[in-house]
């Protein structure tokens, strides 16, 4: 299956390591993928403000990917993944909205006539590559890693449409981490939101929510966090310093993308995994 690779907005600004590590892992395991040309925002951040603009942006990606001959879309952000996945379900009974977005798409010579399959990186890792293949590729077990899996809301909910993992009891990130030799026990707050979506509405409250989650993970004995979504990763990783200031606590805890954990275990170069962009102290953990 030839994937159209959709990297999303955050990869343009401060989440280069997400894209770099995803490319490295997908290439290493021989996944057939290529960038969708002319890609733009998936629409998700606009949905609560302008529904028709959300629908247009999501449809634009499907239309571009189809026109460019892809058979499916690969995503590396939970927000993008949900937006592209829920589009056809949400518009099923809204022919007027579809007509409106097609009127807009026509400006760029595009047309939306239904979606392509959408696959989150977690599904590609777990289903296309699989635990056995990942396990066999491990060169350096992640000994001493006690890693908290953070799935992110949009990878597991809503239950009304297909999502990459179960809505109440997701296990796939943990299974992958354990196949790398890390420990990844379940914890009571595993489903808790990172609150990245309210960072633009009330930053202090949003950072309180994410900071408290990291603090709880530290108290529970975890020495690292694994993310698959750049919004969650920013909230639970890059923003640790400022969240710590808001809370008046030390909430520093190494945070990396799942692809980066895999890359370290299968012996890929740290720079090839974009680890130089992770500023949360992963070095101490890796060089232990």
């Amino acid at each position: 299956m030839k994937y159209g690779f959709f990297t999303g907005c955050t990869s343009q600004a401060d989440s280069y390591e997400n894209e770099i590590s995803a490319r490295a892992i997908l290439t290493h395991f021989g996944i057939d993928f290529q960038d969708i040309e002319d890609q733009s925002c998936c629409g998700t951040p606009i949905k609560s403000t302008k529904h028709s603009m959300w629908a247009f942006l999501a449809a634009r990606i499907h239309a571009l990917a189809k026109k460019q001959g892809f058979k499916a879309i690969a995503t590396i952000c939970n927000g993008c993944d949900l937006s592209l996945s829920e589009l056809s379900h949400e518009l099923a009974h809204y022919p007027d909205t579809i007509a409106l977005i097609n009127e807009a798409l026509a400006k760029e010579g595009l047309h939306y006539d239904g979606p392509l399959p959408v696959r989150n990186i977690l599904e590609i890792l777990y289903e296309d590559i699989g635990l056995e293949k990942i396990k066999k590729s491990v060169k350096k077990k992640l000994k001493g890693f006690v890693t908290a899996a953070h799935y992110g809301c949009h990878a597991i909910r809503p239950k009304t449409i297909h999502r990459p993992d179960h809505h109440e009891t997701p296990t796939r990130i943990q299974e992958i981490l354990e196949s790398l030799g890390a420990k990844s026990p379940v914890y009571p707050e595993i489903l808790d939101c990172c609150s990245a979506t309210t960072i633009g509405v009330d930053a202090e409250k949003a950072l309180t929510v994410s900071g408290e989650k990291v603090n709880t993970l530290k108290l529970r004995g975890y020495n690292s966090i694994a993310n698959i979504c750049p919004f969650c990763h920013k909230q639970l990783g890059a923003s640790q310093d400022v969240a710590g200031k808001v809370l008046g606590k030390d909430v520093k805890l190494p945070a990396m993308y799942l692809s980066q954990y895999i890359g370290l275990a299968i012996g890929l170069d740290e720079e090839a995994l974009g680890l130089q962009f992770n500023l949360t102290g992963w070095e101490n953990l890796v060089n232990k």
Partner: peptide, 21 residues
Amino acid sequence: EMIRAVRENGAIVQPREAQTT
């Protein structure tokens, strides 16, 4: 601001530099 940014360059954020270790 996100809508404005999408209108300007297709994404909710402007391309920018990221800091390394």
